[in-house]
Design a protein around this nucleic acid. Structure first.
Lengths: 266, 266
DNA sequence: ATCGTTGTTTCATATTGTGAAATATAATAT
DNA sequence: ATATTATATTTCACAATATGAAACAACGAT
């Protein structure tokens, strides 16, 4: 159903004369929801930097407000300037702008929340989200990172990658987020094969116990899968009998967006 | 009503050994909603960097996905990694987390959208926003930058700064965004004096013709104004007779948040 | 074809970034 | 209190890294 092309995603080649910038970025990337505050030593250790170097780089980041310090603990946190720059990055993202109308329609049609997500590093990044018109929509999490193996979109994006890369992308072991999360690699691989064939992925209670989602791939003119869209909501509403209908809606929207990107089926 | 302390916000002192990082950040800061895509030469010119240097730094940023290129034009845009990092920055912001409950209550009480905003560079940054329960809420713009002179929150934040800094912060001339935008500096200064006294700011149709907002300051234990909260919505709903009631609600919430930050009135 | 414009590579140079060590500061134990 | 550890910050000699002029390549436009 959809192609698996070998493309060098790990373009981590080192440009000469960019060491300090690369290191500063590594520092920024260390911060996460799980650990939003770091001490200097922790950061130096996690990034493999000399303590003095980390300190100097962090001072530069702090002066520009990309990083701030907890006045009580002295710990480092991401700064407000990143909220501003991140907001600009989000609003100016071309894929997001292009997909939005279809996503809105999809949310209306389905009556559930619709999202646009893509593969970044080894996570799924939520690029856009249209809240459900029905009450009890998902939490607002544009800009959030979600695990690849426990999301419908993650499965779609994984399925589009060659096998060797899938192994690189998946955490080991697969973290169980709910009872339903697939933690057996072989079973996940089998599921991915099915996703590849059918062009649709489903996750029932795999990310959160109450949550079900259906996802389909977005492809560009080179027939590369560059993103995925999904419809998701409470499993009580997205019941088994509704899933085929919803899957069809998601696929139709996905094709519509893909076509706008220059993709031509056939 | 509230204090005006002289504090060096422009801590743009130069740490030794951080030139390239500072320059890379300057490149990122060049991007805006108004101009989301830049050519290499434009960026080099805008930041005052040598073309080669800009190119090298941008290559480093691109390798880490903080920047991406438009395959058609070759132009530079902010990359998806910044959306992810920005999301983390937002979700981990302590002020935002602390203010949220009060902000939710405020939105419920008033039936209008409530926001938390702070001064970053020479703009107001929207840190959080609770949508109106009533239909036709504001557009979602957490992470957005708004002009200081045309927003209620901006007036509050300006009023807390010493006069010399106000002049530095304000654009010259003041940009008229609507018919109602205050573009006369003297008139704005007079208004700020009143805001300083009353501890409340109002903007009726000054940012957008249909939009009215009311804002109050958030203060920390050092009695510094560090942020502002607001309630805003269509002017048709936020009519003159309702404004005093809403102002009281905003002020009460602002005090509540301030007290959590260690502020003690008196 | 020729020019002008923009992006990319090369390379000699020294400025800039580096990290070990010393110092200061805070937190905890004795 | 005092010692002890674990932090953060400053200093400084050294050379690796970042720099920018210049040359080159790749386009479009005229």
């Amino acid at each position: 159903m959809f192609p698996v092309k070998e493309i060098d995603l790990h373009a981590t080649e080192i440009y000469p004369g960019t060491q300090s910038v690369a290191r500063a970025i590594a520092l920024l990337k260390a911060f996460s929801d799980a650990q939003p505050e770091w001490s200097l030593n922790e950061l130096a250790q996690a990034t493999g930097l000399n303590k003095t170097t980390a300190f100097r780089l962090l001072s530069a980041l702090e002066a520009e407000r990309l990083v701030m310090r907890n006045p009580l603990s002295g710990g480092y946190r991401l700064g407000v300037e990143l909220i501003a720059i991140g907001g600009t990055a989000m609003r100016s993202n071309p894929l997001r702008a292009m997909s939005r109308p279809s996503l809105v329609t999809l949310a209306e049609q389905s009556g559930e929340a619709a999202t646009l997500e893509m593969l970044v590093e080894n996570y799924v990044l939520v690029l856009d989200e249209i809240a459900s018109s029905n009450p009890m929509g998902m939490t607002q999490d544009v800009g959030n990172r979600l695990p690849l193996h426990a999301t419908a979109t993650g499965k779609v994006l994984l399925a589009s990658r060659p096998d060797a890369e899938i192994d690189r992308l998946l955490s080991d072991p697969l973290e169980p987020l709910t009872e339903q999360t697939i933690i057996d690699r072989a079973r996940l691989k089998a599921e991915l094969a099915r996703v590849r064939q059918e062009g649709i992925a489903i996750a029932v209670g795999e990310l959160e116990p109450w949550f079900t989602a259906v996802a389909a791939p977005i492809m560009d003119r080179e027939r590369q899968v560059i993103a995925a869209i999904s419809v998701g909501g409470p499993s009580l509403r997205l019941t088994a009998d509704r899933l085929p209908t919803i899957a069809a809606m998601v696929q139709m929207s996905a094709r519509q967006i893909s076509r706008q990107l220059g993709y031509w089926p056939g």
